[in-house]
Simulated assay, not measured.
Amino acid sequence: MNILQALFFPPEQPGGVSSMVPYIGERFRKIGWEIELFSIPKRIRNKGQEPFEFDTFDWRLYAGNPVVDKYMQTLKDYVWWTKLRLKSGYDLIHAHHPVAALALRKIYPDTPLVMTVHSSFERELILNGRIAADGPEHRFLTSLYGELEAKTDKMLTVSHSFAGYMGAYMKSPERIGVIPNGYDERRFKPISHDNEVAQIVTVCRLVPAKGIDLLIKACAELRKRDRKFVLHIIGDGPIRPELESLAQAQGIYDDTIFYGYMLHPEEMLPFFDIFVLPSRAEAFGSVFAEAALCLLSLIGTDVGGIAEQIEDGVNGLLVPGEDPQALADAIDKFILDPHYRYELARAAWNKAKKTYSLSRVIQELKKIYIDLGPPVEETT
């Protein structure tokens, strides 16, 4: 079978999609399937001029708002780039971003189309203070779920929590399939180490939605308790200067290392002890599974897909959102009891190996592809 895996930006961009989709292609190629990876370069801007319309709503009701206008131009740019670069047909298209799905449906109207929604752009924009809840941009972006439902042959997402969120904007939410992300275990190599001082790490884009301000405040509370730690912040983003200033104001700047963007953070993760990400919203939270496969103990907020990965007190600790004190208490438990944090890390590692295996994802996707695509000769 000849399948196009369509992303938005190239796979070297950080995030759960990039840490999984290229490896999906690699596995399918090993069983003799043809897999092509496609995305739009960041430099492509304002090239598309072909009009773009939706079947389920009129986007012009929201025109004039910057987020909406930019989204529509991006759709046109994706269509322009696709027509420029893709010539051959495909047995099936699997899109991993709404822009990719809607643009490719316009160009390949008769090709089976699978869409995996990996995250909520509108929730991220609201949490990052860029749009208002229930405003025109929010209504436009949530209307896209109904359009995707109408235009795709199969809708997938990465957690039951997010399926419930999407379903509120769809006619038949029961048709949404859930396939949690999977990871190639060969990329993750736990390393035996004994850190005298607890090494706390987080990996994310530095935006308000990720809650790193809460982590810094929690670590300031740990400093008041005279706990010893080093906080490692891997990632970059628009609020990095604010977070550095906050670390200084909270008196923990000397205990904090800002690394900036890193292409393969999994190479460093095994040397740390405690992974923390107090997200304000998360469709899945791929980095938790990655940290678990590196044998780190996990602490996250009780939101979205994080709560489906972590069972509090069994394979990690969950804390309420917007509560730096509770977050500090959770980290303190792991600092004071290395044996406890190791036991929970081991449980998280076992669950991640079983539940977030890339082999599981391949088998589930293979069934969907075979059901939707042309007949294929069975291979092992």
Rank of each mutant, 00 (worst) to 15 (best):
V117Y: 03
H118I: 00
S119H: 01
S119P: 00
S119E: 04
S120C: 01
S120D: 01
F121P: 09
E122A: 10
L125M: 02
L125G: 01
L125A: 02
I126E: 02
L127D: 13
L127T: 09
L127V: 07
N128M: 05
R130A: 12
R130Q: 14
I131W: 06
A132K: 12
A133L: 15
A133R: 15
A133C: 15
A133I: 15
G135R: 14
P136F: 15
E137Q: 14
H138S: 13
R139N: 09
R139Y: 13
F140H: 10
L141G: 05
T142K: 05
T142S: 09
T142C: 10
Y145H: 04
G146L: 12
G146T: 14
G146F: 14
E147Y: 15
L148W: 11
L148Q: 07
L148V: 02
E149V: 06
A150L: 14
T152D: 13
T152Y: 14
D153I: 02
K154N: 14
T157N: 08
S161P: 14
F162N: 04
F162Y: 09
G164W: 01
G164H: 01
M166Y: 09
G167W: 05
G167L: 05
M170I: 00
K171V: 01
S172L: 15
P173W: 06
P173C: 04
E174A: 03
E174Q: 04
I176G: 04
I176K: 08
G177D: 11
I179W: 00
P180G: 02
N181E: 02
